[in-house]
């Protein structure tokens, strides 16, 4: 059984006739980090939501963990741009919400501890979301998604609402988590720098057509330096696709 995430001929047409996504083929190998880059409204979020099982595809098939995707599943975790933490739950309670329902209270507690440590927010365990900074909220949101032990993490512009410095910090932390947890990540972004810094492969979406213009390999070794030649060259290649 393949643990890859396989998209075959995915299309999405809304009832009003607008086509958001058209004939997308992509295979995410287990443990791979793929970024989906495109302008606003190019259908990248729609594609992510279809993989998450939140919206059905009009055509094509999605296979995750060897099974056809027909709805949400614990094998696929999601992190949204608006952190979506429950304001009535503390940091630890929000993370606990991510844990599977079958977990015993002790296992749940252990998982919460583990994920609090992972994001370094042990001292904020009792804080409510409104008491956190934007970066802390997004870290907690990430921990909540990871607590469900997904094989694939789907991230929809997770750092889009953060300031530039916090964003860079979180990108580095995300890479560490990805290497530690050995999960597959599909991250949607419109930040070319972010894509080049994070991804093994970058899929560039065409505006309005809902198709891939190109799927690009990133042959740079990690940790990546944003100012070295290879990085700059790749960034230029990507910029040229848009401007």
């Amino acid at each position: 059984m393949s643990r890859d995430l396989i998209l075959q001929g995915i299309s999405k047409t809304y009832a009003n006739g607008v086509t958001a996504v058209q004939g997308i083929d992509l295979t995410l190998r287990a443990g791979e980090f793929v970024c989906l880059v495109g302008e606003s409204g190019c259908g990248k979020s729609t594609l992510l939501r279809m993989i998450g099982g939140l919206e059905p595809a009009t055509q094509g098939s999605i296979t995750s963990d060897g099974q056809a995707v027909t709805g949400p599943g614990l094998d696929r975790g999601m992190v949204f741009q608006d952190h979506r933490l429950f304001p009535w739950l503390t940091v630890e309670e929000n993370i606990a919400f991510g844990c599977g329902e079958s977990l015993s209270p002790t296992d749940k507690q252990r998982s919460v501890e583990e994920h609090l440590e992972l994001i370094g927010l042990q001292s904020f365990r009792k804080a409510y979301p409104h008491q956190l900074s934007g970066g802390m909220k997004q870290r907690t949101s990430l921990a909540r998604a990871l607590a469900a032990k997904p094989q694939v993490l789907l991230m929809d512009e997770p750092f889009g609402a953060l300031d530039a410095l916090t964003r860079i910090h979180l990108q580095q932390e995300l890479l560490k988590l990805w290497q530690k947890e050995k999960i597959t990540v599909l991250l949607v972004t419109h930040d070319i720098d972010e894509a080049v810094f994070l991804a093994d492969r970058i899929a560039v979406m065409t505006p309005r057509l809902g198709t891939f213009r190109q799927v690009l390999d990133v042959p740079l070794a990690r940790p990546r330096n944003r100012n070295e030649e290879g990085f700059i060259g790749l960034r230029k290649t990507l910029y040229d696709q848009f401007f």
């Binding site: 949400p72 975790g77 919400f97 329902e101």
Partner: peptide, 23 residues
């Protein structure tokens, strides 16, 4: 948006009710 979080995490109805809708 909150209901979607619960859906993604495959929460049963009573968890949805007591942890999301009611609060």
């Amino acid at each position: 948006h909150y209901l979607e979080v619960a859906r993604v995490l495959e929460k049963p109805r009573w968890v949805l009710l007591t942890r999301v809708v009611l609060p």
